[in-house]
Simulated assay, not measured.
Amino acid sequence: MAAKVLSFLLLVAVASQGYAQTINEVALDDQHVSFISHPLYARVITIPKSPFDTLLACYITFPSGVMYEAYPNSNIPFEDIMYASATPPFNTCAVGFRGVPASRSGSYELRSLVQHDADTLTLARQTFHLTITESEVGMP
């Protein structure tokens, strides 16, 4: 229920800014991701988009239910979780995890708002179930 309310609020915010005549909402299949955390390597979760489309907004919802803006302004308050930026037009809704503790395992949801042309937007959401294992290999 909370996810539907957040989607609705995001749609209202976008519509009030005059962006869209048509907004399509897409729910992508859940992804199960297991990885070994290390301070030198990052694991990225992402909702891909075409390079011909424009990313307008990207949000991440943590397992606690708290949502943060990742793009255009990264408001994620954790140093080990960050927006994975790229050069436009190749930027996508992507969040990287580097050196995170195993206690950060859980279900994260990404929401991506993409503009296809002057009057068509897509709001995509995808849940990532992360299982994080801490590396036993130290830094050199």
Rank of each mutant, 00 (worst) to 15 (best):
M1K: 05
A2K: 12
A2M: 09
A3N: 15
K4I: 10
L6H: 12
S7Q: 15
S7Y: 04
S7F: 03
L10S: 13
L10C: 00
L11P: 00
L11Q: 15
L11T: 14
L11F: 08
L11R: 15
A13Y: 00
V14E: 13
V14R: 01
V14Y: 00
V14S: 14
Q17F: 09
Q17T: 12
I23D: 04
I23G: 09
N24K: 15
L28K: 13
L28V: 05
L28H: 05
D29N: 13
Q31Y: 01
H32W: 00
V33N: 02
V33S: 00
V33F: 01
S34E: 14
S34A: 11
F35M: 07
I36L: 06
S37N: 07
H38S: 02
H38C: 00
L40A: 12
Y41Q: 08
Y41I: 03
Y41D: 02
A42D: 05
A42T: 07
A42C: 00
R43A: 04
V44S: 05
I45E: 04
I45T: 06
T46C: 03
I47A: 05
I47G: 07
P48Q: 11
S50N: 14
S50H: 10
P51G: 02
P51Y: 13
F52Y: 14
F52D: 15
F52Q: 15
D53P: 00
D53E: 14
T54S: 12
L55S: 06
L55K: 05
L55H: 03
L55Y: 04
L55E: 04
L56I: 14
A57N: 13
C58H: 05
Y59E: 11
Y59M: 08
P63S: 06
S64F: 10
S64P: 10
S64I: 10
G65R: 09
G65W: 03
E69S: 15
E69P: 06
Y71K: 10
Y71N: 02
P72R: 13
S74P: 07
N75F: 04
I76A: 04
P77I: 01
P77R: 10
F78P: 00
F78K: 03
E79Q: 11
M82P: 00
A84W: 13
S85P: 03
T87L: 12
T87Q: 13
T87A: 09
P88N: 11
P89G: 03
P89A: 04
F90E: 12
F90M: 12
F90Y: 15
N91V: 11
C93T: 07
G96L: 01
G96C: 03
F97V: 06
R98M: 09
P101G: 06
P101R: 11
A102S: 15
S103Q: 11
S103Y: 02
R104W: 11
G106Y: 09
G106F: 09
S107N: 12
Y108T: 02
Y108A: 01
L110W: 02
R111D: 03
S112I: 05
L113M: 15
L113T: 09
Q115M: 11
A118M: 11
T120I: 09
L121H: 14
T122D: 10
T122G: 07
A124I: 01
A124S: 15
A124D: 09
R125E: 09
R125H: 11
R125V: 00
Q126E: 15
T127Y: 05
T127H: 01
L130W: 08
L130A: 07
T131S: 14
I132L: 09
T133V: 14
E134L: 06
E134S: 12
E134P: 08
E136M: 14
V137E: 11
V137T: 15
G138D: 05
M139K: 10
